[in-house]
Simulated assay, not measured.
Amino acid sequence: MSGGKVAALYVETDGAYFGLTGVDPWGEARDARFYAGPWPVVAHPPCQRWGRYSENHPITGKIAITGDDDGCFAAALAAVRSFGGVIEHPKDSKAFVGPHSFNLGRPSPVGWTKAWDGIGWICQVEQGHYGHFSRKATWLYASGVELPSLRWGRGEQRIHPVALAKHGYAKARRIGVMAMVGGKDKTRIRNATPAEFRDVLIAMARSAYELRRAA
């Protein structure tokens, strides 16, 4: 039962979740809003409308409305609550807390806490502990699964050597290593889920089978 199938929702086509045994990936060609089970899920709903620049960009100005993601996060939340699983979103996601949020709460950086909805559990973890080139602080919402002990806390500061040489320590530290990623694949590189972290999320989703059997 621990090896049961898992659905990976809102993932990059041909990315980290493709080609894995027991994982049904829902890339761009499949509309994950219409996932109807029965397997537990790992969900990475789009975050653009929930981030720092969800409405206003410092260069382009007003761009959208916070939370206007065509129902992607709401559908991911419904799937996790219905079938078990975990949602991954960036730290400070406005889907978790704020006037447009689903009132899930602000996670702790050192462990799991009960979500404000009284259903799931939330936490903060840095993907840098699992192989991402930056810290990439992440918020998780989980329901119906076992809650693992993760590598909690703040990782070490990572400074891009080019930025250090060009701008000096103070500015290089301020802009962070992720800001130095460029080229046509910059979005894919920044958004990529490290294989080790992906496997943690998949294992969490698969634990839903054991909890169902024990219920």
Rank of each mutant, 00 (worst) to 15 (best):
Gly111Thr: 06
Val125Asp: 03
Gln124Leu: 14
Cys123Ile: 11
Tyr35Ala: 03
Ala74Leu: 14
Lys91Glu: 11
Val80Ser: 07
Val86Leu: 04
Phe102Pro: 01
Ala75Leu: 09
Val110Lys: 06
Gly67Glu: 08
Pro107Phe: 04
Val42Phe: 06
His44Ser: 12
Gly22Ile: 00
Gly37Glu: 11
Gly155Ile: 05
Val80His: 06
Val80Phe: 08
Ala74Gln: 06
Arg52Met: 12
Ile63Leu: 14
Asp24Gly: 00
Pro40Glu: 11
Gly118Thr: 14
Phe34Gly: 13
Val110Asn: 13
Gly118Ser: 13
Gly85Gln: 09
Arg135Met: 15
Phe73Glu: 02
Phe83Val: 14
Ala142Tyr: 07
Leu140Gly: 03
Trp121Ser: 03
Asp68Met: 14
Asp92Glu: 11
Glu28Gly: 12
Ala29Asp: 15
Glu55Gly: 00
Asp117Ile: 05
Ile65Pro: 07
His89Thr: 11
Thr66Lys: 07
Ala78Lys: 15
Phe34Glu: 11
Glu146Asp: 15
Glu156Pro: 05
Phe34Leu: 09
Ala76Gln: 05
Ile63Gly: 01
Arg154His: 10
Pro90Gly: 11
Ala76Lys: 02
Gly111Phe: 09
Cys47Gln: 08
Asp68Thr: 06
Leu77Asp: 00
Val41Tyr: 03
Ala79Ile: 05
Cys47Thr: 14
Pro45Cys: 05
Ala79Cys: 14
Ser149Pro: 02
Ile59Ser: 00
Ala36Gly: 14
Val23Met: 00
Gly84Pro: 12
Ala76Asn: 03
Gly84Lys: 08
Lys94Ser: 03
Gly118Tyr: 10
His160Tyr: 07
Ala76Met: 05
Ile65Ser: 15
Pro25Tyr: 00
Arg151Cys: 12
Arg151Ala: 10
Phe34Val: 05
Lys94Trp: 07
Ile119His: 11
Ile87Asp: 00
His89Trp: 06
Ala137Met: 13
Glu146Ile: 10
Ala76Arg: 06
Gly131Thr: 14
Phe96Asp: 08
Ala32Tyr: 05
Ser101Trp: 01
Pro90Leu: 03
Gly85Ile: 06
Ile119Trp: 14
Asp70Ala: 13
Trp152Tyr: 13
Val145Arg: 08
His44Asn: 09
